[in-house]
């Protein structure tokens, strides 16, 4: 109809979540009686993932589904909300943290300042170490090159573990040819999808951060303000369901890989070492806190939460 509103929704995931994307599109269309239509784009299709915030702000896309790490150079709290090592240890804990009033207010303000509307959070899942050789302690890693991104790399560096950065697409060849000895990238399902099990068998749970990342939904201001309250409600509900579906899909996928039994050999880092990781992570927390007053506030809340949970 003439009143149809089309929204360009850009996720950072690839085609692997197509069934979830389709359900999301159908839900929105159905609940709005066809007045709202979602056009979905996969990671990199319209803009590179690290341009998602910029694109939502300018209106190249209407809704961005990314994570804070992509735009932490532009929005102060990006790194913290994406997930700092030691930040949280369960889905429930992460949810409770982000749903709390002061945290929600900080995020809303930060993204408002960045020129976009903060719509809510999604939650990732396992985020652990995959290596070619078994790992029994952090000491084992000192002679191996591990692929890790900035915040985790900083923590590993504290233990003198050498890190390198490789894009996800190069992990397979990097691992199979020995450019890296291990990687911290995601959970069992992601590693299996990248076929890394063909070259590296040892999955070590770090107990450092769970969920290993959180996701953020942002909307273009003008477009969002132009929606009716009813449409806003439909979108918010559908996005919440979409986010939950992704978390469930990751959880089920990870469990299914565990259940297969022969894909990876699972091990757990000794408690003592996991504690050390959390302690070492404090330096990264402080570094983030120093970036802005708002960051200091958010880190204070994170510390208070960790203390309340008895981890600090």
């Amino acid at each position: 109809s003439a009143d149809t509103t089309r929204l360009r929704f850009h996720t950072f995931y690839g085609t692997e979540i197509d069934p979830i994307l389709k359900k999301f599109r159908d839900t929105v269309k159905e609940n709005s009686g066809g007045d709202l239509r979602i056009q979905t784009f996969h990671g990199g299709e319209l803009v590179a993932s690290d341009q998602l915030l910029e694109a939502a702000k300018k209106g190249s896309i209407d809704i961005a589904h990314g994570h804070g790490g992509y735009w932490s150079g532009q929005v102060d709290i990006g790194n913290i909300e994406a997930g700092l090592p030691g930040g949280w240890t369960s889905l429930d804990e992460a949810r409770a943290f982000f749903d709390s009033e002061p945290v929600d207010a900080l995020l809303t303000a930060a993204y408002d300042e960045a020129g976009v509307v903060y719509l809510g959070k999604g939650y990732g899942h396992d985020y652990d170490l995959l290596t070619k050789e078994p790992v029994t302690s952090l000491d084992d890693l000192k002679t191996r090159k591990i692929r890790a991104t900035s915040n985790v790399a900083k923590v590993l560096e504290y233990f003198e573990i050498p890190t390198v950065y490789l894009p996800a697409g190069e992990l397979y060849i990097g691992m199979s040819t020995g450019v890296i000895d291990g990687a911290i990238y995601g959970g069992p399902i992601e590693y299996e999808q990248l076929k890394l099990n063909e070259t590296a068998k040892h999955y070590t749970r770090l107990n450092m951060l769970m969920p290993g990342w959180t996701e953020t939904f942002l909307a273009n201001k003008e477009k969002w303000d132009g929606l009716s309250d009813e449409h806003k409600a439909i979108m918010e509900e559908a996005i919440a369901q979409f986010a939950a579906d992704i978390t469930d899909w990751l959880a089920e996928g990870n469990q299914s890989v565990v259940d297969k039994g022969d894909v990876f050999e699972f091990a757990v880092l000794p408690d003592e070492d996991s504690k050390q990781l959390t302690v070492a992570a404090q330096a990264v927390w402080q570094e983030e806190a120093e970036r802005s007053a708002r960051n200091a506030e958010l880190i204070d809340l994170l510390v208070a939460n960790a203390k309340a949970q008895g981890r600090l």
Binding site: G73, V75, N79, A114, S150, A153
Partner: peptide, 19 residues
């Protein structure tokens, strides 16, 4: 100009250079 305004830095690696 927007990159200057927020003193944007890169977050790919630990180095985190200005963008």
């Amino acid at each position: 100009a927007e990159s200057w305004a927020v003193r944007e830095y890169s977050n790919k690696s630990m180095w985190q250079p200005p963008l």
